[in-house]
Nucleic acid binder design. Sequence first.
DNA 1: GACAGAAATGAAAGTGATTTTCATAAACAA
DNA 2: TTGTTTATGAAAATCACTTTCATTTCTGTC
Lengths: 143, 143
Amino acid sequence: MKRTKKKAFREFIAQKGLKSTRQRDIILDAFLSSDRHMSIEELYLKLRAKHPNIGYATVYRTLKLFAESGIAREIQFGDGQTRYEHVAEGEHHDHLVCTHCGTIIEFENETIEKLQDEVAQSHDFIIETHKLELYGICGKCRK
Amino acid sequence: MKRTKKKAFREFIAQKGLKSTRQRDIILDAFLSSDRHMSIEELYLKLRAKHPNIGYATVYRTLKLFAESGIAREIQFGDGQTRYEHVAEGEHHDHLVCTHCGTIIEFENETIEKLQDEVAQSHDFIIETHKLELYGICGKCRK
DNA sequence: GACAGAAATGAAAGTGATTTTCATAAACAA
DNA sequence: TTGTTTATGAAAATCACTTTCATTTCTGTC
């Protein structure tokens, strides 16, 4: 999987006529070996430990590139920070967010997706993407 | 409906020991007679036409008050602008957003809501709120 | 109606998270 | 190796709020 994404990104770079750089490799490795929902800030701080000379702007631009290439996706949970999550080929999932501890759980539900398509159809829409987030309190935090 | 909301807001103001001001009345009228999804900026510009002396901060603060009072709700469509939508008592709905022309259509779907609860339950979550947005192209824009 | 005290307002400054600019450094093709 | 193009890092600029603060308004009282 990790291999696949590295390859996918390399191909994207090549096909766009962009350049392969040391920084992009480092950031890609850091991203791939990270939590599934990293903000720019989080990734930047993680990188600074080993590579204090990488700039914030580079992390920012590279993460955008990941999203463009299709190996990552931007998500917002309303806390004012843009996060990037890994995208698995052809897979889509939604999120359960604990408003108390911030834990994020991913889930998939075929039936919901199907119903969404029906709703869209009935309004003459063709869906490109969707966002479904359930905010609440997780079991741990309730105790 | 408009009457009800005005009354609801007046009651909120009174009960909180806040003051009834000319600006709040003006902003409330403008909000109630607007599109269902206004950003602060949009409402501010609309107001400036007739009331050039009302400040942005006042619009911002008043919209927050509307949300607190329950007659409005904050929503985000990922374009970086916070919008406020009218809230009808006890009603909840989700959105279809045309990524081409920006049209926003509201819809409700009982079955989806029920399935969401099931998902939450299976992860030991208790849902407080949720956000479901379907992004796509509307019929008009496809032509 | 005049007042005191509490709130609200508007202009401007401050914030936080990006986003862009620009001089310099690295890639890549020839 | 060189010329050309793209990327990088530091710093400045943006954007969409948010807060501050000197003034104005409200509102219950006298």
